[in-house]
Simulated scan of single mutants.
Amino acid sequence: MQNESQIKVLLNEQKFRLTNERHLLLKLFSESSRMLTPAQLHELALEHQVKIGLTTVYRLLEVLTKTELATPFLIEGVIYYTFCGCNHHHHLVCLSCHQVLETHQSCPTVEVPEDFRVEHHRLDLYGKCSACQHSIEGGESH
């Protein structure tokens, strides 16, 4: 995982000044175990008395996405984000509770034509985590 000073350097390269409020917002986002919409992240910040506007939340997510510290997911027409503070990895995304698990396992082999140069890839697997599977089987909502 990248340390705080490395993250500050990446954000500074994008001309994004890390004020105290933005730093607290980033900390809340990075410590979340599930993906969040911008509105959910804004609400989380307000719950923790971080006085920040929704525009700043969008700007932080934009910069984090550019620096590959955040990954967006489009699920049922809604964009969610998860913090990605480490090297290349893939995601296991629960469609029920929106928990995101990272896996560092290799990507399956894909046949690529010789005249095509791959510059990067992304592999995300969507399904239900074990807790949500048990909740559905037991008739509970998770």
Rank of each mutant, 00 (worst) to 15 (best):
A131L: 00
S141K: 11
C84A: 13
H134T: 12
E68K: 02
A70C: 03
C107T: 12
D115A: 11
I52Q: 08
T37P: 09
R34N: 14
C129H: 00
I7G: 05
Q14W: 14
E76I: 03
P108Q: 14
A131Q: 02
I136E: 13
N20Y: 10
R22Q: 06
E4W: 11
Q40G: 07
V78D: 13
R22G: 05
T56D: 15
I7T: 12
S32L: 02
T82K: 12
F16K: 03
H23C: 06
A39W: 15
L125Y: 12
K27Y: 07
E21F: 01
H90R: 07
R117T: 12
T67E: 15
L92G: 00
A131V: 02
F29S: 02
Y81A: 05
V100W: 03
L10Q: 09
H42N: 08
M1T: 14
L54W: 07
F29L: 00
L44H: 01
L44G: 05
A45E: 06
S30N: 15
L69G: 09
N87T: 09
E102F: 00
P108H: 11
H142R: 07
F116Q: 14
R17P: 10
T65H: 01
L60K: 03
H89A: 04
P113M: 05
L18D: 04
L74Y: 06
G77K: 10
I136W: 01
T71W: 13
L46Y: 08
L61W: 01
L61Q: 06
H89T: 05
R22C: 02
P108F: 07
N3M: 13
H88E: 14
H42R: 01
H98E: 15
V118G: 09
C132V: 02
S130R: 02
H142C: 14
G127T: 09
F83Q: 10
A45R: 03
E114H: 12
E62D: 07
I79M: 09
H23V: 03
S32C: 06
I136Q: 09
M1H: 04
D115G: 08
R117Y: 10
L11D: 08
C107M: 14
Q40P: 06
N12G: 12
L64K: 00
E114Y: 06
L123W: 13
Q40A: 15
G77P: 02
M1A: 09
L125V: 14
F16S: 06
L74T: 06
L60E: 07
S33I: 11
L64T: 12
V110L: 06
M1S: 07
V110N: 10
